[in-house]
């Protein structure tokens, strides 16, 4: 069985991939391609549920074994259960107040928390930039800081002064040539990587679903 299931998995992946690929070129296979893709979406939706269940069990184990920091696990599980309970309860409400309650819960908890974390990230990044040359004094650090300063400084007009045309021309030059060239190179590399990975999976060279 150890050699049977990898062969089965590889065969299914290769067949599904080829059919999906052929669905783009063969019109008769489009329905089959859409069926396979819809099936993948459903599986991904269940994968989220599995992930949530796994998260629940991990933190429940932490609480049961009284590991360090289990209080946070307790808070997480409590919030999860309360949210699920309220969501299921208000979804059964015929008045349709569920969206308002869940929207209010989101705006009052999730949104401020995440925004505050990003604000802290802004301060932390600024502090790291200030300390960069103290911890790592080399030319690459200087170039990195210089490009960052130029980008920030030319992004917006100076207060009470307005834009400096030389700086704006410099920024446009950098964005149109260096940044665009670098971004395209990255995108082309990503595309080639995706293509190669797809072919390896179709040919069975890579088996992310198991097997050697």
């Amino acid at each position: 069985m150890k050699r049977f299931w990898p062969v089965i998995n590889t065969s299914i992946a290769a067949i599904a991939g080829f059919l999906t690929l052929l669905g783009y070129f063969i019109r008769n296979l489009k329905a089959l391609k859409d069926f396979i893709v819809h099936g993948a979406v459903i599986l991904a939706a269940f994968a989220i549920l599995v992930g949530i269940a796994n998260l629940f069990m991990v933190h429940l184990t932490k609480i049961r074994t009284r590991q360090e920091g289990n209080i946070y696990s307790f808070l997480l599980l409590t919030a999860m259960i309360v949210s699920l309970g309220f969501g299921l309860a208000f979804s059964m409400d015929p008045s349709g107040s569920n969206p308002d309650f869940m929207q209010g819960l989101f705006k009052s908890v999730i949104f401020p928390v995440e925004t505050s974390l990003l604000a802290l990230l802004a301060v932390t990044l600024l502090y790291a930039s200030v300390r960069l040359l103290r911890t790592r004094t080399d030319w690459m650090s200087i170039v990195f800081l210089a490009s960052a300063v130029i980008g920030l400084f030319t992004m917006v007009p100076l207060p009470f002064i307005g834009e400096i045309r030389i700086l704006n021309g410099l920024r446009s030059f950098l964005m149109d040539y260096f940044v665009t060239a670098g971004a395209r190179g990255i995108l082309i590399g990503i595309s080639l990587g995706v293509l190669t990975t797809g072919l390896r999976v179709l040919l069975g060279a890579d088996r992310p679903f198991g097997g050697k």
Binding site: L126, V130, R131, R134, T137, V149, L152, V156, L158, P159
Partner: peptide, 27 residues
């Protein structure tokens, strides 16, 4: 917009000043 511009300019100044100071200290 003003807050955004003030913030960017201040951050830039802090980076410049801090980098120069730390560069001297590192040397």
């Amino acid at each position: 917009w003003d807050a955004y511009c003030f913030g960017l300019l201040t951050a830039t100044l802090l980076i410049v000043i801090g980098s120069i100071w730390n560069l001297i200290q590192a040397v």
